[in-house]
Structure formats: structure tokens, C-alpha cells
Amino acid sequence: MAILNVQNVTKTYDSGFQALKGVSLDIEEGEILALLGPNGAGKTTLISTICGITSMSDGAITVGGHDIQSDYRAARSLIGLVPQEISLEPFETVENTVRFSRGLFGKSPNPELIDQILDQLSLLDKKKSRIMTLSGGMKRRVLIAKALSHEPRVLFLDEPTAGVDVELRKDMWETVAQLKADGVTIILTTHYIEEAEAIADRIGVINQGQILLVEDKDKLMQRLGEKQLIVELAEPAAVIPPALKKYNLSLNDAGTQLTYSYDTKGERTGITTLLNDLQAAGLSMSDLNTQQSSLEDIFVGMVKETV
């Protein structure tokens, strides 16, 4: 059974802007889902709606089987949220702000657990420090500590690595991997496709308030992945022979490299006939290699299609 079930959720703001247009989504327990989408796609609205920050116009959402409206206490107690903006009280200490979050979720104080979470996030030595004295990366980790303080089963990370340097981003990925190992279900939104590629089990693409697809990451790569066959020519060619026109080849400026794009999901890739035709056209090859299109290419392609 899915730990999170979103059914046909719509959200229209008072201004008339429709941020979500019938979104449906199932999240399985223990998985990491990366939600990709350009600015204004509806990622944050979707998360805010599930967490109770924004009210939905229509539809239904359950978390752990609990309806987020009629059984909001049970539903929300399962959720931890790391918001996109760094929203922290600057004058408060790390320890107090994390303890406050635990209390808000109805959990009795547990200093050992708070220490353990802070330690896991490399914040233990900063627990008595005021938030205002911390670096941006540390503040982001404090937000994660706050979200984890009540031991949620579902964690939402809204662009957790936005504006974070590469090293810290890798640290964050390790933290996410550790949380997954601890059994936490994670839904993260990101602009960084490499991030989704690196840590997600499944990838969802959202644009203009609609989920375009949700698919297993590897299957997605396989299903939509366009590959390129690059043929290195032994002798430079001035033009592409007319007999090879049907393959839509491209020739580099030096005339030494022909690129053929083919679809891996197609029944026939056309490689064999291409190689035969190349030979028939009198072109000799010195090397061959293939390249898979990145998730970024797939994503950009899908978003362009919906615009």
C-alpha cells in the first residue's frame, strides 16, 4: 500500500491562477521520489498542499492511510518538511529550535535523540550556537534536523541543495541515502537533474500544474533514452553522401565524425543497415561509440513538449 496517495488534486489560488490541475500520485514506503520541474511548475504548491500549508481546491490526499483533512493530526505526524526557504528564528539556539519542532508534533522531549540527529547532520558541536552565527549550509541542515526531530516516516525536501556548494550537496545526498536506509520515504524537488539521477528511485516530472510522468529512474532512462552512435571516419568527408540522407546524420565541421541518433525503445535501431550503407557509400570507419542522452535532455524535451 502506498504511504502517500494523492488523488486528482487541484489548487486554484484566489488570484485565479491554477497551480495544480488534477494531480495524482502514489508514493511507496521507503522510496525516494524526485520531482523535477521548472520554476512555477507546481512543485512547492503540491508539497505545501500535502503538508497542510496550502489548502487544496479539490481532490483527496492520504498519508499512511489517514486523510490530511479529516484526520490531519495522524496524517501530519507522519510528515517532516524541509522548506525551500531558510526559515529559522535567528536569535534562537540550534538545540532549542529543534526541540521546539519535536514538541510541536506532540512528542515528549528526547535530548538523546536530538543529539543523535544533530550528530548525524554534523551539527552537534553547534547545538548551543545561535542560528544567526551559522553558515548557509549549516542552516539548511538545521532545517533537516527540525524536520527529523519528530521521527517522520515521510520526508519532503523542497529543493534541499539550492544554492549549496558541490561538496555540501554531496554531503546532503549521503544524508538522504542514510535516511532511506533508516526506512524514511523521501520526496524531493529539485532543479538539478544530476541530483535526481544520483539519488532517486523514481522520477516525476511536473509542469504547469500537471504530472507529466512518474517512472522508475532506470526504466525512464531506458524508455525515453535517445542514444547517439558516433562514427569516426578514417578519411574526412566533405559532405554526407545522398544515399545516407534517410538516416538524418550530422557531420562535424572537420568532416571526421558522423552522428546518428536512434531510439533505444524502437524495434529496430537501424544501426546494422547504416553500417552497411556507410560501407557501400565508400566511407571507412576508424572507431565507433555510443552515448546515452542524459536525464536533462529527456526533461528539457518533455517540458518543451508541454509548452
Binding site: 503538508c51 496524517a75 526557504e85 526559515s87 529559522l88 528564528e89 510541536l104
Partner: peptide, 17 residues
């Protein structure tokens, strides 16, 4: 007003209270 101003109101809205 302060949580509204600095954005920490999200915690109150998403907590089971």
C-alpha cells in the same frame, strides 16, 4: 507576526495541532 515575517509559520501550519 514574527513567524509570519520570517517564514517559520510553515511549521505551525504543517504540525498536527
Amino acid at each position: 507576526y514574527f513567524p509570519k515575517f520570517i517564514g517559520t509559520i510553515y511549521e505551525l501550519l504543517s504540525a498536527p495541532i
